[in-house]
Amino acid sequence: MYNQLQRLNGVATFALTVAFCLFVAISYVSDYTRPVDQGTAQVTVRGIKVQRGPTFPDAYDPKSRQSHYARLAMDIEVDLTRLFDWNTKQVFLMAVAEYATPTHPVNQVVLWDSIIQSPEDAEFKLKKYRNKYQFKDFTEKFGTKTANLTVYWDVTPYVGFLQTTRLGQTSQTFTIPEVSYK
C-alpha cells in the first residue's frame, strides 16, 4: 500500500530527527563558558567632556536642549582570535559604561559595539575613538559620578546556546565631570 512519496517522507523525517538529536547533543557537549584567557580586550578612557544641549539631536525629546550628553575619547585594543573555532559564527563585542545613581542603582549604557565575523578581523586597535551611541543619563543631568567602562563579548555559535561572558581585566574606572559650557 505504500507508494514512493510515503517512503521518501519516512526517510526524510527519520534523517531530520537524527540530525536534530545530533545538534542537541553537540550543543550540550560544546563548552562555550570559555575562560577569560581565551580572548583579551583593553579599554582606556583618554578624555571625557559633558555638554548641555543638542549634541545628539532627538526630534522626539523636547528636553534635549537642556539634557547633558557625555562624549568619551577611548582607546580599544582587542584580540579575540582564539575564540574562533569550528562552531563560532560571530562574536559581538560592546563597550558599556556602568554607574549608579540614588534613584537607579544599576545604569548601563552601550557606547560602542562591533560584530566580528572572522578571525582575521578579531584583532584590532582603535585610538581616541568617540562613543558611537549617545551617553545621556536618565535624569537628564549627570552631575559628578564615578563610572566603569567595561568590554563584554557574546559568542554566536552555529549550533548551541548563546552565552554572555564578561572580560574581567577590561574594566576601567573614570569620573564623569560637571558640564563644560562652550
Rank of each mutant, 00 (worst) to 15 (best):
N9P: 00
G10C: 02
G10T: 08
A15L: 15
V18N: 07
A19Y: 00
C21I: 10
V24I: 13
V24T: 10
A25H: 01
S27K: 01
Y28A: 02
V29A: 11
S30R: 02
D31A: 00
P35L: 03
D37S: 14
Q38N: 06
Q38L: 09
G39F: 12
T40D: 08
Q42R: 12
V43D: 06
I48L: 09
I48Q: 03
K49Y: 07
K49E: 14
R52Y: 01
P54M: 13
A59T: 05
Y60I: 02
Y60C: 03
Q66T: 06
A73Q: 14
I76W: 06
V78D: 08
T81L: 00
R82Q: 14
R82C: 01
D85Y: 01
K89H: 09
K89T: 08
L93E: 05
A95S: 11
V96E: 06
Y99A: 04
T101W: 07
P102Y: 04
T103M: 13
H104K: 13
P105E: 14
Q108V: 04
D113V: 06
S118T: 13
P119S: 10
D121T: 09
F124C: 08
F124Q: 09
K128H: 12
Y129W: 12
R130G: 11
N131Q: 13
Y133Q: 02
Q134D: 10
K136L: 09
T139I: 07
T144A: 05
N148F: 13
V151R: 01
D154E: 11
V155N: 11
Y158E: 08
Y158L: 01
V159F: 04
G160F: 02
Q163F: 05
Q163D: 09
T165S: 12
R166I: 08
F174E: 10
I176M: 04
V179R: 08
V179L: 05
